[in-house]
């Protein structure tokens, strides 16, 4: 059996594992996910978008509890999906874990944790990456 679905996620794997985005060398705006052209500096940024590692800290901008999810998330349903405003500037889409839905609030501080994201079928590649947990859970010191 050949399964190539993992390949397109492999290209972004390092960025996903270690939160590697880009920073515009001209205006210092940080992007995650990476962009090769700055939204503000346009062509002046080409060639100046350098890799930039995010520290993995932010706040919840908004969130939802997904009850009717993509089947790839299987027993993780219901899960909490959120937009996280990162300290460095970008906003990211990710799941919130280690918290019960009623405790989630807009503005709460969160940090990244490393989790299984999903798998397309039981014999497929397992995708790993970031999720976020509330700062009330043990975490790396800032």
């Amino acid at each position: 059996m050949v399964q190539t679905e993992g390949i397109r996620y492999w290209r972004d794997m390092r960025a996903r594992y270690n939160l590697i985005g880009r920073r515009c060398g001209k205006c210092s705006r940080v992007y995650f996910p990476a962009r090769s052209i700055c939204l503000d500096c346009h062509r002046h940024s080409i060639g100046k978008m350098d890799p930039y590692k995010l520290q993995g800290r932010g706040t919840v901008s908004t969130f939802t509890i997904v009850h009717d999810g993509d089947p790839r998330f299987g027993v993780q349903v219901p899960y909490i999906l959120a937009l996280i405003q990162m300290e460095e500037g970008p906003r990211m889409t990710a799941q919130l874990v280690d918290i019960d839905p009623p405790q989630v609030t807009i503005g709460m501080r969160v940090h990244t944790v490393f989790r299984k994201i999903g798998t397309v079928h039981t014999e497929g590649v397992i995708h790993y990456g970031y999720k976020f947990a509330p700062d009330s859970m043990p975490h790396l010191r800032a």
């Binding site: 299987g74 027993v75 993780q76 799941q95 874990v97 280690d98 944790v113 490393f114 989790r115 299984k116 994201i117 397992i126 790993y128 999720k131 790396l140 010191r141």
Partner: peptide
Amino acid sequence: PGPDEDVITISVEAGRYAMA
């Protein structure tokens, strides 16, 4: 383990704690 945790996620968290 949570439904999204396994030996790899545990190893990574532990490994990152050690390196930090």
